[in-house]
Design a protein around this nucleic acid. Structure first.
Lengths: 220, 220
DNA sequence: CGATCTATCTGAACAGTGTTAAGATAGATA
DNA sequence: TATCTATCTTAACACTGTTCAGATAGATCG
């Protein structure tokens, strides 16, 4: 009696045109993660809903629970991948630069560039209340991203590990705060490419001010 | 036929024990704002709901719309007051300190202290998507808070206005990023007073690193 | 003083949300 | 071939924000 046409609408998902076989989806986890990232890219962090993700993956609203427990579980997986991507971008930015200061500058630019290009994902990565905050893999992924700054900064300050911790906290705080404020349009519009370019130039000045080419910064 | 006992339950609100007269509430705006701030203080930004605010004010869920349009309107008013409080805290922190560097340090500490003591309100102030982002009063209140840094920093860098803008952006970014990361527990727990104190000491080191007592910072 | 006017609030409804429980389905296993 | 088990659906629940017609009460005016 039940129509059971639901398998038909499964072909209208956002899932990439891969296998996507029979009834048992087979790749539902990946499909849900991909759908979630698509929503975050299109609508931002506030636009995400679990039902919409399920809709795009072509399954019922209850399906995700079996794989991720709840919405937090799914978003945690998305956040982990986000941290991995961010850490990769930071490593890549630093590699190839000659000195420690150049590495730090490149990392700072890469950090904010990541945030401005993937605002929804970035906001979600730092929305602890929407994630399983004590998830071990999430914590490690986050730590790895933060650690990218420590590595570069340790080279900059030739001091104790404690000094490196402080300097890394300073660097992370500055670029993170700049990214957050920029996303809230405190430095002008970042909706178009021109606005983003201007904001990135402001960031460049900030970095030059806080970590000048050499010696002291112009100061009273 | 309608019972009309609803006026009875109005006495069970969170509203301060002031007049709170007859049927027409008379101070519903203030009651809703106070209720919203209470929710933010107890449950954080994610815990706020318009219905709960109405519940605490002792009115129906539809009542707020008449005064604030929608939830964004109410939250915008809350955010404006938050910015005013923040700007006041920043001004007060700077006043009384002798030099520009001391003023900046005090402001930075006050900024993060505000964020850690009122996390829900702070998060909401910077959640543009939940506010009427282009509200004139909100924008001005936000600008005023950011301007507090410019005033102090202009005294620090004896240069052009453009240099002051850059230095203010740097200071704001650093303390804002530190506050955000601290609230997401990236520097350890901030749930109890001891954790917050430790985090504030880390902030102090960061400020000392970025704006050292005099001259250059220890650097390769 | 009494009638009308107007701002304020209620009641009820709507579409949408996350989550849960019970049952159907299909691939894997014995 | 029969059973087992992971996976997914259906249906329901308690919420949410918002809208609209109507009730209410304080203010205004004849």
């Amino acid at each position: 009696m039940k129509k059971r046409v639901s398998s038909a609408k499964r072909s209208t998902g956002v899932t990439r045109p891969g296998p996507e076989p029979g009834y048992h989806h087979g790749e539902l986890q990946e499909a849900l993660i991909a759908a979630s990232e698509a929503i975050l890219a299109e609508q931002g962090a506030e636009g995400f809903t679990l039902r919409e993700a399920a809709r795009r993956a072509g399954v019922s609203p209850a399906a995700p629970s079996h794989h991720f427990g709840n919405a937090q579980g799914l978003l945690t997986e998305v956040a982990i991948r986000g941290y991995d991507a961010l850490a990769g971008a930071l490593r890549e930015a630093a590699s190839g630069k000659p000195g420690a200061r150049e590495k730090l500058h490149a990392q700072g630019l890469a950090y904010v560039d990541f945030a401005l290009r993937h605002p929804g994902r970035f906001q979600m990565m730092f929305a602890n209340k929407r994630l399983v905050a004590d998830d071990a893999r999430l914590r490690q992924a986050s730590r790895a991203a933060g650690h990218a700054f420590e590595i570069v900064v340790a080279e900059l300050v030739g001091g104790t590990p404690k000094g490196a911790k402080t300097a890394a906290a300073a660097a992370w705080s500055t670029v993170h705060g700049f990214a957050k404020l920029a996303l809230e349009e405190k430095f002008g519009s970042v909706k178009n490419e021109a606005g983003r370019r201007e904001v990135m130039m402001t960031l460049n000045q900030v970095l030059n001010y806080l970590w000048p080419a050499s010696g002291p910064r112009p100061q009273a």
